[in-house]
Design a protein around this nucleic acid. Structure first.
Lengths: 248, 248
DNA sequence: CATCCGTCTTGATCTGGGTCAATGTCAGTC
DNA sequence: GACTGACATTGACCCAGATCAAGACGGATG
């Protein structure tokens, strides 16, 4: 295999977000080249809808940067978020013609899209792409099941603490290390989005956040910046047994 | 390819439950043979635990007959069911050493197990197994996400109606046809199991079932046999928009 | 046939979180 | 530096569903 540095195709694909989760880490140069050919980028503004549930969807994509949400709405307006899409997460489903959920950007988002048909064909001829996709899907399924426990059985306070600890965890992945001590991060979600994620109302979210704040479990700088002085203390509030939970 | 009837290996694999969902429908005889070699059956009594969360799990399996549940329990005893395993459903995860959830039989269950390591090797060399597994996993992920809407946003009555309609739907798959008119089926779950699935208490389940009964949406024969005189009427109670919902 | 035990139903009461409504905060922007 | 509009907080009240507590059913067992 040609070293990536001397191979323009491979170099382009270094930006390929799907690579973030190693889908094409094992690809040969010609496979990379075929991925390159069917890929294009799209950008979205905060609040913009990427796709509505039921719409025709003829691409699959991977989040390059920003935060998007996956949600469902009942006809009377009740909505439930069913996934948080962070960089490297995969969107869309090979073999499915129409989107099953609404996808919305909550911050500026860049997605790396692949035309669906050619991607499906490529998958059929390139087993490691399918294998990697299977791993990712299994991870998401586990996360969804953990989330079901949260939605079905946790109290409002536990839900908030869980969400904060998940976001902290995702942030921390970047700067690795064990999850203890002080943490600081920006909350990308509005109170309403948090409520939709947790199956609560935005008032309850606000009240519980205030409660955690007044008890010193967290501090707020402005409305969006969260400081967790002692991560262990936050974890205690989640109801999870100590350091299980590998959500989202 | 040799016709299945004249090929003993392929014939054996006709009983292979994984075939129910077409995993080996496209396999060549030698691949079937390799699946045969690593497969064995296990039976479980109602109430028996197949595996505890955290236990070492060195097989993957497919449900041949009976009903099992997938659930999580918090240390204070709150439990949430995260999946209902019906015939043809897949259990376990290639590449994962330990079980992430408790699996329990609720009726007599037969599972077709494959030793995990050899199965993983077989998957690596037989792309259609991985492809089929990916499809199944994506279906399960969709079902889990539909379930999140139920847990987070539906009322107790809507939850019960949804569960009944899902079970009816699964029964009906066998005897195909569009979902209208009269239905009759056995409820495999206790009130407590229903409660764990729906994120309710068993008392609430009981009350809501009674309410649906006294309003004529369903009739009960004994405690477990359910008669739905008009499926459309039950669907109205689920809160789903007309004939969406392709759960579990 | 009595009695036991697991499961289910039903009633009475309580409460966490929903609902409705007012007020606060702050980043634009004219 | 006042005005606006989007977001967030806070309070007062209410109700769906939880909790606590009896019973009722039904099938197994002696």
């Amino acid at each position: 295999m040609v070293p990536a540095a001397s191979n323009p195709v491979a170099k382009d694909c270094a930006d390929c977000p799907i690579r973030h989760r190693a889908v094409c880490a094992r690809c040969e140069p010609d496979e990379l080249h075929r991925l390159e050919e069917i890929k294009y980028y799209r950008s979205f503004e905060p609040g913009q809808t990427v796709i509505w549930s039921g719409d025709r969807m003829d691409f699959v994509a991977s989040v390059v940067s920003g935060v998007a949400t996956l949600s469902q709405t009942m006809e009377d307006g009740r909505t439930q978020m069913v996934g948080l899409l962070l960089p490297s997460d995969f969107v869309g489903r090979p073999g499915r013609e129409r989107a099953a959920f609404d996808v919305k950007a909550v911050t500026p988002v860049v997605m790396c899209c692949f035309r669906r048909r050619p991607f499906e064909e490529l998958m059929a001829s390139t087993p490691h792409i399918g294998q990697r996709l299977l791993e990712m899907t299994l991870d998401e399924l586990d996360a969804a099941r953990e989330w079901m426990l949260l939605l079905g059985r946790k109290t409002a306070r536990e839900k908030i603490a869980s969400l904060l600890s998940i976001i902290a965890r995702r942030e921390a992945q970047v700067s690795a290390g064990p999850m203890r001590g002080r943490f600081e991060f920006d909350l990308p979600l509005t109170r309403e989005a948090m409520a939709d994620y947790l199956g609560l109302t935005l008032e309850t979210v606000s009240r519980q956040v205030s409660a955690l704040k007044s008890e010193g479990v967290i501090q707020l700088e402005g409305k969006r910046r969260v400081v967790v002085p002692d991560f262990a203390r936050l974890l205690d509030e989640t109801g999870d047994d100590s350091d299980g939970g590998f959500l989202v």
